[in-house]
Amino acid sequence: MTMHKTVGVSVDAMIEDLRTLVETESPSRHLEALALSAKVVAAVIESRLGGEAVLIESEAGPHVHWRAGGEPKVLILGHHDTVFPLGTLERRPFTVEDGHVTGPGVFDMLGGLVQAVHGLAALDDRSGVEILVTADEEVGSRSSRALIEERALACGAVLVFEGAADGGALKTGRKGCGGFHLSITGRASHAGLEPAAGINALIEASYQVLDIAALGRPEVGTTVTPTVATAGTQDNVVPAEATVSVDVRVESAEERERIESAFAALAPHLEGAEITVEGAISRPPMPESASAELFAVAQRLLPGIEGTSVGGGSDGNFTAALGVPTLDGLGAVGGGAHADHEYIVIEAMTERANLVTDLVRAIRNA
């Protein structure tokens, strides 16, 4: 491995901590794996920062919470669950090569966590700082949302260590996002002998998909995308059941209300068919106004750094919706989130860790 050193922050040490986290696989909803991952995350935090990282049990797995003491001023927010199933590491092991680190979860978002911890370690005084690393961000943060909101309000400023946007840009705005699921009930019959005796759930689902897709308004940032559909049991049976899953992204509270009302109002086209709709836009939009104050600080500290709004959601959506200043995308520079080519750029690790140090110092001194 090529040696990378800098004053205050050791890239080699960051890479070794990142290896430790990545090689402890942590797929969402796998409670046994997440329990081990939380202990490993806590151990890394304690080894670099001292103190005690407390495990907060939940139905989704343990969240990790570390506090430096003193009046809360800034919350470092991240997650240790990943989208990759157990066994991914065997197929795609942690690798350091050609200036990149690859492996499941390096960009989303274990690299960011490591940079945050090492950036904080460079501070002589860490008072007022908290770290919260949750276990269920990739699956909606249902068990952690209340805790995230509580600590964000207590601290008054939130730095989110999701991976950076393209080119290393910070994420100054995010769309609200959520999902809906339609269950459609018809009536089975023999497709050859008496097709008219049935109520075709697949045809009803087709009508619904067209209605749903028409709800999108890309000109105002609203996308409504049917993503998964199922129907039928045999090729000679009129299908009695069908399901449709839909991904939704919005930029405004008004569009969130319109979309949720539209899904609630969906009605069958075929006589006798029944529709059940579940879901919501669970992550509210993160407006750029929520990040403006902290982004201005980041620009003073690191001239030339850019900001951009993105379509994906994070736990920063929740904190921004509370009116708490929130800056996102402070994590690793790289790409390939949720994909086999996921990577981070080694050369950028020092700069990002140093930005953590300087941002926290500036927030506390404001």
Score class of each variant (00 low, 15 high):
D98I: 09
G105W: 07
E46N: 02
E71P: 13
L77D: 05
M349R: 09
G329L: 00
G304T: 11
H100Q: 14
S289F: 07
E138A: 11
V250H: 08
I305H: 06
L120H: 00
I259D: 04
R145Y: 07
G279N: 05
V228C: 04
I131M: 14
A332T: 07
S189Y: 05
R187N: 02
F295G: 02
G336N: 05
G304Y: 11
D124M: 03
S10A: 05
I363N: 03
S141A: 14
A321N: 13
A42I: 07
A205E: 02
A169P: 08
F161Y: 15
H63V: 03
V133M: 15
E97A: 15
V324N: 09
L21C: 05
D81M: 10
A298F: 01
R258A: 03
G99W: 06
E97V: 12
R258K: 12
H269N: 12
V41T: 14
P218A: 04
E288G: 13
L202C: 13
F263E: 04
C155S: 15
H30K: 12
E351F: 04
V310C: 00
E150R: 15
L49Y: 03
G179E: 09
I203V: 15
L294R: 10
E71H: 13
E90H: 13
L266D: 05
G178S: 12
L89M: 11
S37T: 06
A146G: 13
Q299S: 15
V83C: 02
A265H: 06
V74C: 03
A253W: 04
S206W: 02
T95A: 14
G128Q: 11
T95Q: 14
G178M: 06
E204K: 10
F263I: 09
V356P: 04
T319M: 01
G198D: 10
A321K: 05
S245Y: 02
V246G: 04
V244S: 07
Q208V: 08
E52H: 14
G103M: 00
R29N: 14
Q208L: 15
V7F: 12
A188H: 04
A122M: 05
A332F: 04
F94T: 01
M286N: 05
E97M: 13
I305W: 06
